[in-house]
Each structure stands twice: as structure tokens, then as C-alpha cells.
Design a protein around this nucleic acid. Structure first.
Lengths: 124, 124
DNA sequence: CAGAATCCATCGTGATACTG
DNA sequence: CAGTATCACGATGGATTCTG
């Protein structure tokens, strides 16, 4: 588990478990990564990069390592040249599927509503 | 809507709607604030501070203002001395209830599992 | 191919002190 | 009571360059 995740779990012992979810899922590309792995099953590093909007290698690496440390993703390295590394969901990662979907649904509705202009054209 | 939320909605137009949810709910005290308002209906600034673990006024103010800008919370100022300010959920804020609950449930299970020692005492 | 190293700008959180 | 102003600090995201 990541140091950050551990700290959140330790310090927010009370009713704030939602913070734990956000600590684990709240990276810049993490929900998308989890969705893609749920959809495709197994993906290589480069495939993930292309399916996302080409984050820098450093950023994508960090997101994946953090997900790995938090136990959501399994990383498999094939000892060969050129290198080949595969990522797939762990059982824990799969358990987050419905939550990611819920985040996606609410976020989509929210974005649509805001784009439609909740703050624009009041009435007269 | 906050500048950040707007930017997220603009820049992640693709399948990454979960990022929107996290942008809106991902503050240090936001899920807790939303839960408390859902439970209590209306709360004053000071009451919220006490029900949470006494965040600094500056931090609590920011969280509440951001939630207000994002349309989840309604702020009512009573023009009197001493000041009195009440917060309650908007309809949009109430719509986030099930999502916050889902975050809480998964986060709670995750934290419990990690505390139980997924990384400890493997088996042999 | 799948990264590691280095560097940098920005953000979010928080402590402290002050105010109408 | 419900903030605001100022400051400091770590974490995060990203650009660039280099490598087995």
C-alpha cells in the first residue's frame, strides 16, 4: 500500500471512508486506467498510453505503480528484449468497477448539466 | 462553477467523466460535509467545524465555497450581529448522495481489508 | 519498449494572526 | 460568529532528456 493511502486510512479512521476511495482512485488517469483494464483485460504499457491521451511516460508509470501498490493492478514483467510489461486488474481492482462506473455516471450527468448552462441564461 | 471543475469538464471531454466527479468531490473534507448536510439538513459554519475534526476556518471556508460554486451547496447569510451563515444541500448536492455513499462503502471495505493485513502474514 | 532522472510550475492543505 | 490575509510546505502533474 502507498504511504499516502496508509496515512489516509490511519488519520481518517472516523466516518470519512470516502476519503480512502478518493485517495486510491484520485489520480489524474486512474479511473480511466481501471476502466480500460476492465474492458480489455490485459494491456501493455504502450497500449495504455495510446488508449489514454498519451500522458508522459513518467506520469503513466507513477499512476500504474500507485495502483499496483494499492493492490488494484497487477504488473507482469517479461524478461526479454525489447521489454514487455503487462497490466491487469487484481480482484480488488475489479471490485472497484461499480464505483468507477458510479463516478463516471454522476460526473457525466454533472458535466452535461453544466454544459447545458445551469449558470447561463437565467430567464430574462 | 469553479474554474477547476470547468477546466476538467472542458479538457476531459472524452470517456473520463469520473474525473469530473473527483474534481467536484475530491476535497479534503467534501464527502464528509456532504454526508453531514444530508443527515442534518441545515448546519451553521461553526456546527460543521465541530462535527468535522475542526479544520481551520480557512480550509473549511474554501471547501464550502467550492461546493457552493460547483452548485452542490447553498449558502445563506443572515445579516445580523453576530453573523449567522447556514449551509444546506442543493438538489444537485442531494443527487450526489448515493455516490458519496458508494465511495464510503468501498473505502470502508478497502480500509478494513488493508488493516486486516493483506500485506501481512501471507500464509506460510 | 518501458521506463528512470532531473527539473519545474502549480495546487491543496494547514498554521497563524487579524477583523466586522 | 464567520470569516479574511499572509505565509509555508508537500504533493502532483508534466516537459525534457537519457537508457538497458
Amino acid at each position: 500500500m502507498r504511504e499516502k493511502t496508509e496515512r489516509v486510512i490511519r488519520e481518517w479512521t472516523e466516518s470519512c471512508d470516502a476519503e480512502v476511495s478518493i485517495a486510491v482512485l484520485g489520480g489524474a488517469w486512474k479511473p480511466s486506467i481501471l476502466s480500460l483494464l476492465a474492458e480489455h483485460g490485459v494491456l501493455r504499457f504502450g497500449e495504455l498510453g495510446r488508449l489514454l491521451d498519451n500522458p508522459t511516460a513518467r506520469v503513466l508509470t507513477r499512476q500504474l505503480r500507485e495502483l499496483e501498490q494499492d493492490g488494484l493492478v497487477v504488473r507482469t514483467v517479461y524478461q526479454q528484449v525489447p521489454p514487455k510489461v503487462e497490466y491487469r486488474l487484481s480482484e480488488l481492482g475489479e471490485s472497484a468497477g461499480p464505483l468507477v462506473e458510479a463516478l463516471t455516471r454522476w460526473g457525466g450527468q454533472y458535466a452535461a448539466q453544466q454544459r447545458a448552462g445551469v449558470g447561463a441564461a437565467p430567464s430574462g
